[in-house]
Each structure stands twice: as structure tokens, then as C-alpha cells.
């Protein structure tokens, strides 16, 4: 499973991610972004997630790839 990560120390509230993957991020009352729910996203959203990464001026967004249960023995 892939998981979206947003580094809260790096985010400066540009809101570029909110324009591209609004279904995956929350914006707080000050304009800062955080990951919605647990951040897991479907592979069908990968292109947009990568676009959000490529458009964040603060380099605050990344993808965490979790090993599946089988790999995790």
C-alpha cells in the first residue's frame, strides 16, 4: 500500500497540493496542509500524487511505500 506523507515542518501553506489532490489533503484554518485520514491512496491516484509532489515549492510531500503483509514475515 502507498501512503501520502506531508512534512508539517516544511509546509508553508502554498496550497498547491490542495488544488491537485483535494481528496487526499486537509487544509487547516491557517492554510497549512495535512494528510486526510491515514493517507492511504489507491494506485489510480498515483499520477496526481506525483504531480502534487512535483509542484510543492517546499518539497514537503512524499510517498511512503508500505510492505504488504506477505513481505513482512
Amino acid at each position: 500500500m502507498k501512503k501520502l506523507l506531508i512534512d508539517k515542518d516544511k509546509c508553508q501553506g502554498h496550497n498547491r497540493c490542495a488544488a491537485i489532490i483535494s481528496d487526499l489533503v486537509d487544509i487547516d484554518g491557517l492554510g497549512f496542509a495535512s494528510v486526510k485520514l491515514d493517507g492511504h491512496f489507491d494506485d489510480s491516484r498515483l499520477i496526481d500524487v506525483n504531480k502534487a509532489i512535483d509542484n510543492c515549492p517546499e518539497n514537503a510531500i512524499s510517498i511512503f511505500v508500505e510492505l504488504s503483509g506477505d513481505d513482512n514475515v
Partner: peptide
């Protein structure tokens, strides 16, 4: 353009307050 990490509103702690 797909990849566009521009600095029109600056970068870092002084990111333009009015960018939205």
C-alpha cells in the same frame, strides 16, 4: 507544464501571505 515548483510567491517562512 507538469512539474512547476516555482517561487512566484517566494519560498520558506515568508511565503506570500496573500497567495490564495
Amino acid at each position: 507544464r507538469e512539474r512547476n515548483r516555482h517561487f512566484a510567491f517566494g519560498v520558506g517562512i515568508h511565503r506570500c501571505l496573500g497567495s490564495n
